[in-house]
Design a binder for these strands. Structure first.
Lengths: 217, 217, 217, 217
DNA sequence: CATGAATGAGAGTTCATTCAT
DNA sequence: GATGAATGAACTCTCATTCAT
C-alpha cells in the first residue's frame, strides 16, 4: 500500500474557547452519524458540516483535510479504548490471573460495547484511512499494558510472555469483533463476558509456567 | 449504514470463450494487485483495467459496476475459506476434541496465511462494500460446519453449543486478524498454530459437559 | 418509450443571492446558444458550462442532472407561450369570432416568432426529453383558454366545442411549425398572420351553429 | 446548428439477395421497436442488433454508421408518405376543390395514422438527426405535388399559389401532429378527416380567386 | 460473410478544497 | 471568524466502431 506521508493529519487548530470546543464536538458527532447513516463512501465534508450545523468553511477551519477529520474521530475512539485498558491493567498489578482476566474482560467489553455503533462504523475508517501506523501503535500500547500486568501475576509466570500477550489480546478482540459485525444479539452480548473470561483464563493457565504455578500456590 | 439493495451485484456476463476466461482472471488478479499496491481509495476501474492489460470497456463487459468487481473478488476469497473450513470440519466428524482443534486450526491458519496479502487487502473491501449480508452468511456457514462437527466429538458434549461455537470461531479469527493487520512477523506466524490450538482446546475442554467428559475417559 | 418516472426533474437549488441568479441566467442563455450552435447531440454539460463562463460544478449546483437543465429551459419557453395565449384569450372574452382570431393569431405568431431560433432549438429537446406529460399539460392549458374564449363569442356558438378547439389549436400551430423548421422565409413570415386568420376564421365560421349565427347578425 | 457534411449517410451495401433483404427488414423493424420501447437516447446499435436477431458486425455490414441506420429508417417512412401524397395529388388533377381536399386528407390521415407509433417515434429521430435538408426536400416534394394539383382545379384559381399551398400543407399536418403527440384519442381520430376537410376547404374556397370561381360555376 | 469480444474517447456526475463576501 | 458559491480534477460508466476468429 502506498504509504505517502500524510502531512498534518492532526487538526491544525487547537480549540481554546468553549465555543470552539462545542463546534468540534458537534463535528465529531456529525461524522459518526453520517458514517452510520450513509456509510463511508457517502461521507462528504458538506454532509458532515450540514449535520453539524456549521458551514464547510468552518469545518475546514478545524480540520484542514477530510483525512484529518476522520483520523481525529478514529483517534478519539482508540485513545479512549487504550486508556481504559491501561487503567484496568495498571489497577491489577500484583493480582491473580483470575482477577486480572475478569477485570480486563469486563473493561474491554464495556468500552467496545457501550458505543457499539460507533465502534462498528470506525472499522471501515481504520481500514481505509492511512492510519495503519497509528492503529498498530495503539495495539502496541495495549499489549504493553497487558504484558506489564501479566508479569506481576501473583500466581503465574510465563516463559514467552510476548507470545502469550499477543494471543491474549487477539483472543480478547476476536469474538467482540464478530459480535460487532453481526446483527446485534442481546443473548450473545450477555454471555460474552463470562465466555471470554473462560477462554482467556483457560489459555493463560495452560501457558503458565508449571513450576511457578506450584510455587505460587 | 444505508443498505440500499444492490441490484445484481453479481449480474455479469458469464464468459463463454476461453479468451474471456483469461480476461476475467487477469482482471481478478489486477484487482488484488492494485488493492495491495495502491489501497482501496485509489483503486479505480481504469487502474485495474490498465494493470490487467485490457480496456475499461472490457472490464465493464464482465463487471457491470465497480462494486460487482469488488464483490466478486471478495466472494472468491471467502468462498475458498468457507469451503476449506467445511471440508476440514466434515473430515473430523466423530474425532476427539484435540484432533478437531488441531485440524481446524491448521486448515484455517493455512488458508488465511497462504494468501496473506490478499486476505489483508480484502478487509477494507469487506468493510466498505455493501456486502454485510454476504459476509454474515459466510460466517454463518462456517459456524454451522463447526457446530455440526463439535456435536459429534467422541470425548465431549456441550450444553450451549451455539455459544461455544460462536466463541470458538471468534477466538480462531481474532489472533489471525491481528497478525494480518500488523507487520508480518515470521516468529509469530510460526508459533500461531500451536498457540491457537492451546487457546481453543483450553476453552473447549473447560466448556465440555463434565459428566460426558468423565464417561468418555 | 420507457417512461420511467424522472425523480425531481426540477429539484434544483433555488438561488438565494444575486450572484446566483446571474449564474443561473448565464447557464440558461448558454444552453440555448449551444443548442443552436452545436445541436442537441453535442450539447454536453461541460460545453454549456464553458459557454456560460462557469465550471461544471457550478452548473450541477443548480441543475442536478442534465435533464433538469434541459427541462428548465423548455419549461421557461413553454410557460411564456402558455401565458401569452391565456392572456390574449382572456382579453377577448365576449368579442366576435373575427376579433378573437385576429388577436390570438397575432399573439401566437408573435411569441413563437420573436425567439424563432429558440423555438426551433427546443423542438428537439421536447422530442427527446422525457417531458411528454409536461408538454401535454401545456397544450391542455392552451386549449382550455381557447375553449373558454370561444364559448363567449358574441356572434357564434358551437355544438362540439372540444373538437372545434382542438382543430383551432392544431391549425394554428401547423403552419408555424413548418415555417420554423424550414429555412426562414421573410416573405412567408409576413404573410403568415393574415393567412392564418383566414384559415381559422374560415373554419370557425363554417363550424358555427347556423341558427345562432343568424340570431347574432 | 453545425451542419458538418455527413459522408455516406446512405447504406453502403445495396442488398441484392433475398436473405440480405430479410436482414435489412429485420433491422428496420428492430430499430422502430427499440425506438418505441426505449426511446432514442437508449437506442444503441447493440440493442438494435440483438432485437433483430443478428450481431453488431452484421448490422454494420449494412449500415456503416448508426446515423446511416436512423437515416434509412426515417427515409423509408418519409418516402412512403411523399409517394402517397404524390399519387393522391396526381390522381386528382382536374378535379374540383372539394374532391381534391377529400382525397388528399383521406390519404394523408391514412398514411400517418396507420403506423401511428412509428410516426411518433420518428419525430425525435428527425429532430436530432442531421437530416434537415432531406426532410425539407420531402416537404418540398409534397408541396410541389399539391401545388401542381391545385393549379388544375376545375372550379378555382389562386393568385398566390405558393402561399396557398404552404398553408394548405401546414394546416394539414398541424392537427395530425398534435394528435400523434398526445394520448391517442379514438374519438378525435374518427372526427379528424371530416374536420380537416372542413378546415382545408374553408380556407381554399376563401382564397380562391372570386372572378375565376364565378367563371367556373 | 457472420460473430461478439475488445477498444477507448467522451459523457455525466461528485466532492475535497478555496476564497470573495 | 463564518459562510457557501465556485472550482475542476478525477471518477464511473456507455457505446459507436473495429477486427481476429
Amino acid at each position: 500500500m502506498r504509504t505517502e506521508p500524510i502531512y498534518a493529519l492532526d487538526a491544525r487548530k487547537q480549540p481554546r474557547q468553549a465555543r470552539s470546543q462545542a463546534t468540534v464536538d458537534a463535528i465529531f458527532e456529525a461524522t459518526i452519524q453520517v458514517l452510520l447513516a450513509e456509510g463511508l463512501p457517502r461521507l462528504t465534508t458538506i454532509r458532515v458540516a450540514e449535520r453539524a450545523g456549521v458551514s464547510v468553511g468552518t469545518l475546514y477551519q478545524y480540520f484542514p483535510q477530510k483525512q484529518a477529520l476522520l483520523f481525529a474521530v478514529l483517534q478519539r475512539h482508540l485513545e479512549r479504548v487504550a486508556q481504559t485498558v491501561e487503567d484496568a491493567a495498571h489497577a491489577m498489578h500484583g493480582a491473580t490471573l483470575a482477577q486480572m482476566v475478569k477485570t480486563i474482560v469486563t473493561a474491554f467489553v464495556q468500552i467496545k460495547t457501550e458505543n457499539l455503533e460507533e465502534s462498528r462504523a470506525l472499522y471501515a475508517v481504520a481500514a481505509e484511512l492511512d492510519s495503519r501506523d497509528y492503529v498498530l501503535g495503539i495495539k502496541q500500547r495495549n499489549r504493553a499494558a497487558l504484558e506489564a500486568m501479566l508479569k506481576t501475576a501473583s500466581d503465574a509466570q510465563f516463559d514467552d510472555i510476548a507470545t502469550v500477550t499477543f494471543m491474549f489480546a487477539g483472543v480478547l478482540i476476536g469474538p467482540i469483533q464478530v459480535l460487532l459485525e453481526g446483527p446485534p444479539s442481546a443473548d450473545m452480548l450477555r454471555m460474552l463476558p463470562a465466555q471470554l473470561e473462560s477462554v482467556c483464563l483457560g489459555y493463560l493457565e495452560r501457558e503458565a509456567n508449571p513450576a511457578n504455578r506450584a510455587k505460587a500456590s
